[in-house]
Design a binder for these strands. Structure first.
Length: 434
RNA sequence: GGAGGGGUUCCCGAGUGGUCAAAGGGAACAGACUGUAAAUCUGUCGACGGACGUCUUCGGAGGUUCAAAUCCUCCCCCCUCCA
């Protein structure tokens, strides 16, 4: 995407791709980014050991910045997590132990390095625990606290909501804004970082940091917020039944991750390509008119590119192959999104479907079908497995199971394996060991 | 410190002694329809070798009762108002 004569400037690119909801100081910010060598940061809360799909917007925006020659800072909130941000939350966060937080920080740092190049100072990975943890209460209040008006703070949306709710706002959370503002000031001092980006719920905190820097340093720094990404049906993007879609392959396998993207709704394909891949905009535009089978090819490309970014090319190819063997595969024309590196030939082989092995002796005695569905993890209880079978959603090697206690024996094997299918999209392969 | 309100199954939320494994909604799951989409319709939705039955669940611990989510005692947590 770096080829081409007329390269867009970052701001335009981010705008066109749908990353920007709001910015402060439009003109000055544009100048700042156009003059090269800008430094900007996004904060990531280590509330879990892994980032999830919802974090891709900030991650991708930092990646775009880096591609345009700027220096992004990924700030992991190891310090602020000890407080808990009330913004956009209807209730007090569960307090996390320091050990949990540090564990989460480590996990998140690892993932960020898949998307950003931290070598040679091209990007910076920081943890605000490094400066927040050693703050002293009285000096902090005297130097920082005095710049904050409570009258003003309680007017911010992030607090207002909670002030009027039954849950209330706890004092510890009330301080979050001061700490995040202090982060910005600190990054400005240390790295001349002049831009903070964040979700739209961060607007108040970002603005507070801008004001603090102005008051204490008489310098102008900027803010930018991302829109809340919703699906075309209006629901929040990135959550599924099982909760968030994680970037950690241990929590969400590359295959599931791939499937998540393939299952994108029609109306969201082009939008998601703009946001979650680096495919060139002029190619993505063509997707907007696709329908029927073609839109599914576009979804495959979206899934492949997104999986490649998060898990690497090898895993992306495996996931693609696994999906192909489950759902079939079609050749993808070279003219379709030509910038994508997806393998375009129709595929046959299956590789990374969840699998387990079973002893041949055990199978020889026969195993009731529903037990097999439980032991493979396809169902969480015998009752659930029976229900699945009763409803006609279970099959083994493409033969529908009609009786929950049907005995499965070596006779059901096909090519030495049992392919269990629960519903249309969940599979499990059992290989038989002698 | 005082007064009041509240903690119910994944979420919201009804339920004030048996008819409660607990209304209703959402989410989810399965089926039909499809394009591995959405929408719609139907069914399911604590566990247990399926109906009957048994066991576990309504903040925690005890107690009353033939019977407790419901009554009593103590404790924990949250919120509101007053100080």
């Amino acid at each position: 995407m770096l080829r081409g004569e007329k390269r867009m400037n970052v701001l335009d690119e981010l705008k066109t791709r749908g990353f920007i909801e709001n910015t402060t100081h439009d003109k000055e910010l544009e100048d700042y980014l156009n003059n090269g060598n800008a430094t900007m940061y996004v904060g990531f809360d280590p509330t879990a050991s892994s980032l999830h799909v919802g974090h891709l917007i900030p991650i991708m925006s930092l990646a775009h910045m880096q591609r345009h020659g700027h220096r992004p800072i990924a700030l992991v909130g190891g310090g602020t997590a000890r407080i808990g941000d009330p913004s956009g939350r209807s209730e007090l966060r569960q307090m996390m132990t320091y050990e949990t937080i540090e564990g989460n920080v480590a996990g998140i740092k690892k993932q960020l390095s898949h998307f950003l190049d931290f070598t040679g100072g091209k990007a910076i990975l920081a943890n605000n625990a490094d400066w927040l943890a050693k703050l002293e209460y009285i000096p902090f209040l005297r130097e920082i606290g005095r710049h904050f008006s409570v009258n003003r703070m309680i007017k911010f949306e992030s607090y207002k909501q909670r002030l009027h709710s039954d849950e209330g706002l706890n004092f510890i959370e009330f301080n979050y804004m001061l700490l995040q503002s202090y982060d910005f000031l600190n990054l400005f001092d240390t790295y001349s970082c002049r831009l903070q980006m964040g979700g739209s719920d961060q607007w108040g905190n970002i603005v507070a940091g801008i004001e603090l820097t102005r008051k204490m340093r008489q310098e102008t720094v900027f803010g930018m917020t991302f829109p809340l990404i919703t699906k075309s049906d209006g629901s929040k993007m990135g959550k599924t039944a099982k909760g968030a879609v994680w970037l950690d392959p241990e929590k969400t396998s590359p295959y599931e991750y791939f499937q998540f993207w393939v299952n994108t709704q029609d109306g969201d394909v082009a939008k998601f390509m703009k946001l979650f891949t680096f495919l060139p905009l002029d190619e993505i535009v063509t997707v907007e008119t696709f329908q029927d089978a073609d839109i599914n090819l576009a979804k495959t490309i979206l899934a492949y590119e997104a999986t490649k970014l998060a898990h690497g090319e090898v895993e992306a190819k495996k996931a693609l192959a696994a999906a192909a063997s489950m759902f079939g595969s079609r050749e993808i024309p070279a003219t379709l999104l030509p910038a994508s590196t997806i393998p375009r030939k129709a595929l046959q082989t299956s590789t990374s479907v969840p699998s387990s092995s079973l002893d041949a002796a055990e199978l020889a005695q026969g195993i009731p079908a529903f037990k097999l569905f439980v032991s493979t993890g396809l169902c969480t209880s015998g009752g659930e497995a029976k229900r699945l079978i009763k409803q006609g959603g279970a099959s083994i090697n493409d033969t529908k199971i009609t009786q929950f206690d049907q005995m499965i024996t070596a006779g059901n094997m096909d090519d030495g394996t049992l392919l269990l299918k629960a519903g249309k999209k969940r599979f499990h392969k059992i290989t038989i060991t002698q």
